[in-house]
Nucleic acid binder design. Structure first.
Lengths: 338, 338
DNA sequence: GTTTGGCACTCCCTGTCCAGGAGTGCCAGT
DNA sequence: ACTGGCACTCCTGGACAGGGAGTGCCAAAC
């Protein structure tokens, strides 16, 4: 494929993203210094359409890019434009004011939404990629405990535990020491194995209690892993003509389903630094008209993902730069709090 | 005002809520067994319009209720229809499966959204109406602590504390004992006073550390109080013709602002069991076209509010019943976990 | 005095038609 | 290989008319 044809595609993508209207041959030849006439552009456009990169909403309208066209643009044409110095400073300052993990996530998701003018999604640090920092047992009544687990990423999980027999203060201290000895510093992915042997290590009279505790512990490391996700910027779905072809409904519904959001952020095993899924490259049916840009983050290794969701007609260079920058800053912050 | 006129108003409200279309005199006299002709209804409607309870979108259209009309309907005409037995069972089961406070709030807000087909908002138990159940100090590095506060409603707050000098294990134990002795069981509203005296009670060599700790403690009980709110059901804004006169944007934006949501749930001091704010009775400008139904909840005394937001044209009896029922169940659950 | 049927009137809604405009495809000429 | 010209297609917006729903008012009936 011709170099000029690529330039024409770039012009179409850029103009269409900017104006949200089909772009015609005259506009391309005038606004972009290609040095050729509109008629020539028309020939190139016919070729690009034939090849599936652009399409016409109807005869006698301008062209708009297809998903395939955007893909080519992202892969070969888009020059990522880094954030301005002012933006970088703002990101840095806003995120460094966070007081705990919850706050980091909340601020991150808002920041992303604001920078990209799109819907932002941030996954809380995944439990099974974290390790245990501390386990705390608080006795509420003699037969009722509260279990609090703190991970190295700062995430806090709490559970109630009903125990079969009454416990003394010393019993609680014993149990606390036991679980911390066994689990502190261990990766949660390894935890189930350790937890299974927990009851056997307790004093005989505490066996029953320890196994009740083990059951709840297992639940909190296995059952609800992955689930937590924060969303912001839903209002951006209504920007200008975005409106997602009027089918706002399913999108809003999907945004409230953790399962769908996790799918959106990509299979947890993906360690790719940055992923762009355009249109039908997306697995979730409701997002066939959308593009999702995601990045992994974490101190050293990836512990979670974040991303933004927007119309396929989005400002790719800007969005990609923003997601990448924010993911980096968040990783830095987690590193510091380690 | 005539009894029959009230019946006409009720008919208009009910039909309009059901069909979302202006209702005419003929429809009223036919569908509701008033025993009078359309012409008579027309006279009554002229009166109701004069008195400000209903209005015409334009000449030669049917009538729709005004905010004043809905108000009268709610105060004098609506017979609250309790939830069906099946619904009550479903509510009960769904909520009793919650595993911690976070889960209770999440489930509650979803339940409300689903029952009422509207946007639901639930405030986390307000910190300054709770009391301290337990304070935990975890040492991360010799000069860095993690403070975890657990309240009687099950809410968990965590903060990092940088301390001026290196601490031994015993120092940490000492501090933990001190803060728990002083604060356990105390209402957070009283906490600032107690915290102020905290540093003075520590061993001399721990004074500096204790006052750093006190600063952070104060922050966590004062600064971010009230703030946390959960939202669900935003997709319901797009139901049928709801769309809020096409101005979806400001509503979605407002729903992401904690401050606005707190205003929506009503001044924190309101202890009223159930509040209905219709149209301009609402203080928040963006919600002039909306009705907000809120209820307080809590074990014994009110510790937070929950509510739903919908178009003024909503099913008042059903919505009110749902909000009240859910608030009661949640209160029961908090009572049990006390 | 209240209720009723009748009637003229108003206004919205829908569909049709038409002119204007933007953009294309193709062809012949450079 | 590029360009200018030209006929053609299709969308868009305004104008206009007909049908329908609902009203207000009036005179007659209960």
């Amino acid at each position: 494929m011709d170099d000029r044809k690529l330039e024409v595609l770039r012009a179409i993508v850029e103009d269409y993203v900017a104006t949200q209207e089909p772009v015609g041959s005259k506009a391309v030849s005038q606004r972009h210094a290609l040095g050729v006439s509109a008629a020539t552009v028309r020939n190139d456009m016919a070729y690009l359409e034939e090849a599936g990169y652009i399409q016409q909403p109807h005869t006698s309208a301008g062209r708009i890019p297809t998903a395939k066209g955007y893909r080519l643009f992202v892969d070969r044409l888009g020059k990522i434009k880094p954030l301005s110095a002012a933006e970088r400073r703002a990101v840095h300052r806003f995120l460094s004011e966070a007081i705990d993990l919850d706050d980091v996530v909340t601020r991150t998701v808002r920041l992303l939404a604001q920078l990209t003018h799109q819907v932002a999604v941030v996954q809380y640090p995944s439990l099974n990629r974290s390790s245990v920092r501390h386990l705390e047992l608080v006795s509420l009544t003699p037969t009722r405990l509260m279990l609090v687990m703190i991970t190295d990423t700062g995430r806090v999980e709490q559970r109630y535990v009903e125990v079969p027999s009454e416990l003394t203060e010393d019993d609680v201290l014993d149990l606390r020491r036991l679980v911390n000895e066994q689990l502190q510093g261990k990766a949660l992915a390894d935890a189930p194995r350790i937890i299974a042997g927990l009851a056997g290590l307790a004093r005989p009279e505490l066996r029953a209690t320890a196994s009740a505790l083990a059951r709840v512990l297992l639940e909190s490391v296995v059952a609800r892993t992955e689930e937590r996700v924060a969303v912001a910027g839903a209002a951006n779905l209504t920007r200008n003509g975005n409106f997602f072809a009027g089918s706002l409904r399913p999108i809003l519904e999907a945004l409230e389903e953790e399962v769908v959001l996790m799918q959106l952020l990509g299979r947890a095993d993906s360690n790719a630094l940055l992923t762009v899924r355009i249109g039908d490259e997306n697995e979730v049916a409701d997002f066939r008209e959308a593009t999702v840009v995601t990045a992994g983050y974490g101190p050293g290794s990836v512990v979670g993902h974040m991303g933004v969701l927007g119309p396929t007609r989005m400002d790719y260079p800007g969005t990609i730069a923003a997601v990448r920058a924010v993911a980096r800053y968040v990783s830095e912050i987690l590193e510091q709090n380690r």
